Amino acid sequence: MKESVHQTFTLVRKDLLLELRQQYSFYGVLLYIVSTVFVINLMMGRPDDKLWNALFWVVQLFVAVNAIAKSFMQESRGRLLYFYSLVHPRVFIAAKLIYNVVLMLLMSVIALLCSIVFLGNPLTNAPYFLGIVLLGGVSLSLLFTVLAAIAAQANHNAALMAVMGFPLIMPVLMLLANISLSAFVTVYQPGLPKMFLLLGGMDVLVIALTMVLFPFLWKD
């Protein structure tokens, strides 16, 4: 168990070092966030609350696709075979999940700051919305990591990830959008705890299924 934890964080450190050396990918996603939000500002000015919320989660969706997809796309078949000979598949996918969660949390905070700067701050409860953004970043990163892993086994077919991801990501986005609407009003909504439990349960389910299915997927 101790060795598996050490191997997991070693792989996470490896991905972080690669990110620091290949900074063009990080800055590419950062440029995408800033330019997208700035273009929205030029076209619409400062939208109303519901539209602001919807646009923010659309930006989050495409940020997740651009940031998470490369985690497996940059791994060659030979490198994957090398890792397969060194560590257990669950250790490898756990490292990818942790790294992508950290990356997506950072990108989510940057996207929120850019949205507030360029599109205004209609939030009544900013700490609550920040918590939803972080929770949503975790959910999106977990789901797209699994999809990227499946696409990587299909000759790095990014189109496959998009096709599979659309029906899976829509319920998550709708749930996040509904929960986050409470940050724009001062009225308490009694159904929020159930929504949080549902979102947390979906994250746990994704992690559990990934740990069970990925070893069989990686053997192929």
Rank of each mutant, 00 (worst) to 15 (best):
K2T: 02
E3A: 14
S4E: 15
S4V: 00
H6M: 13
T8L: 11
T8D: 07
R13Y: 14
R13D: 13
K14M: 15
L17W: 14
L17D: 10
L18V: 08
Q23I: 15
S25Y: 13
Y27C: 06
G28N: 10
L30H: 01
Y32I: 08
I33A: 04
I33L: 00
V37E: 04
F38Q: 04
I40K: 02
N41A: 07
L42F: 12
M44Y: 13
G45P: 09
W52V: 02
N53C: 09
L55E: 10
L61G: 02
F62Q: 01
K70H: 10
K70V: 03
R77D: 13
L81T: 15
L86R: 09
P89W: 09
P89D: 06
R90G: 08
V102W: 08
L105M: 13
S108G: 15
N121Q: 10
T124L: 15
P127D: 02
P127H: 04
G131S: 07
V133Q: 06
G136K: 00
G137V: 10
G137S: 04
L142M: 02
L142C: 01
N155Q: 12
N157L: 06
L160V: 13
A162Y: 13
V163Q: 05
M164L: 15
M164V: 10
G165V: 08
F166A: 15
I169Y: 02
V172P: 07
V172R: 05
L176F: 01
L176K: 00
S182L: 09
F184H: 04
T186Y: 14
Y188P: 12
Y188D: 15
L197Q: 11
L199W: 03
D203L: 00
L205I: 11
I207P: 00
I207G: 01
L209T: 04
T210E: 12
